[in-house]
Design a binder for these strands. Structure first.
Ligand SMILES: [Zn+2]
Ligand SMILES: [Zn+2]
Ligand SMILES: [Zn+2]
Ligand SMILES: [Zn+2]
Lengths: 172, 172
DNA sequence: CTTGTCATGTTATTCCATATCATATATCCG
DNA sequence: CGGATATATGATATGGAATAACATGACAAG
């Protein structure tokens, strides 16, 4: 996001990837608020970009660029890799989508509009992805960086494991 | 590593990726200690595997699988992708090498033999990589995971930024 | 109208990674 | 030792991720 950033209240920062919620309105709301954010910041949420964001919001999990591309093709958009990658680039640059490096895949941001360095919990069983807030600068990494004189610009924090549902299933 | 694990003293845990050191003996020592660790644990550090580890120790930065493969070819080893990937798989599984997800590349471990969840500092200018210790369970991610009921099995922690050298150069 | 900027489309290529089948080499046991 | 078993390597083929390069269309500013 280029401007108009504001901190988001703490109670909006809870991970939403696990557990139930009204998904239809969840997607609706996210799209509406994305449109508004773009309007406010002079960004163009074009049809392809909007479609990709919508796809990622529909799933609460990561989609690979080629899965996205397949769906774009079905919807009548361009079907070559750059089409997907450019839309994803826009969405990532502006904070609507995050890339999960571990999976080479993309997921919709859970609290867009807020400047934040995200951390992710990735279920290795069901592929669900939940976003939480990383305490970048604090913690041992921040300390090590300061000690070494390393200037952190961006962090990747991804935890892999079992989500609550899959843990329950594994136990029974 | 399958057995014989021991914690490593704290003072061996400092990042060694940035700053000068006697690199030749650094590589020597690491190779020798890898050989010993393998002997102790019934692991087979075969010629290909040893060569790959040596290559990664030579650089204190991440190498892609195909860069590794090129060098293997030059040394008269097999030159097909699986050759490199199998050696890397062995080295990663046994803690001699880490994968840098952000770069889809591999780097030699700075404190092998110790059970540890590594964190990395990656210079975007010169590609140097330093390894530090991540405080996985502590910090906000651990808290979020406990709150959500997510069971962490493995973490990826990678910071991207400028190393001390490149910071100095940028300033002048 | 012209120019510059931004978004989209298309082609081609490069890089990363794995499945599969075949062959060799240890290691174990009778 | 000889044969069974597991492990390691070799080689072929394919799939998936990402970008380079070039062309076209939309649109706003001058
Ligand atoms: Zn986010
Ligand atoms: Zn799950
Ligand atoms: Zn390590
Ligand atoms: Zn640097």
């Amino acid at each position: 996001m280029t401007s108009g950033m504001r901190p988001v209240p703490e109670d909006h920062m809870a991970p939403i990837g696990f557990g139930d919620h009204d998904h239809d309105t969840c997607v609706e709301n996210a799209l509406t608020s994305a449109e508004q954010l773009c309007r406010e910041n002079g960004l163009r949420l074009t049809p392809v970009r909007r479609k990709v964001l919508e796809m990622l919001l529909q799933e609460h999990r990561a989609l690979g660029a080629y899965a996205i591309l397949d769906r774009l093709r079905e919807e009548g958009f361009g079907s070559q890799p750059p089409v997907a990658y450019r839309a994803l680039d826009f969405l990532v640059r502006n904070g609507f989508v995050h890339k999960i490096e571990r999976l080479n895949a993309f997921v919709a941001c859970s609290h867009p509009g807020a400047t934040h360095s995200p951390a992710f919990m990735i279920c290795r069983k069901c592929d669900a992805v939940a976003e939480a807030q990383a305490s970048t600068a604090k913690g041992s990494l921040g300390a090590a960086a300061r000690a070494a004189g390393f200037e952190i610009e961006r962090t990747v924090v991804e935890a892999e494991g079992l989500c609550p549902d899959c843990t329950k299933k594994a136990r029974k």
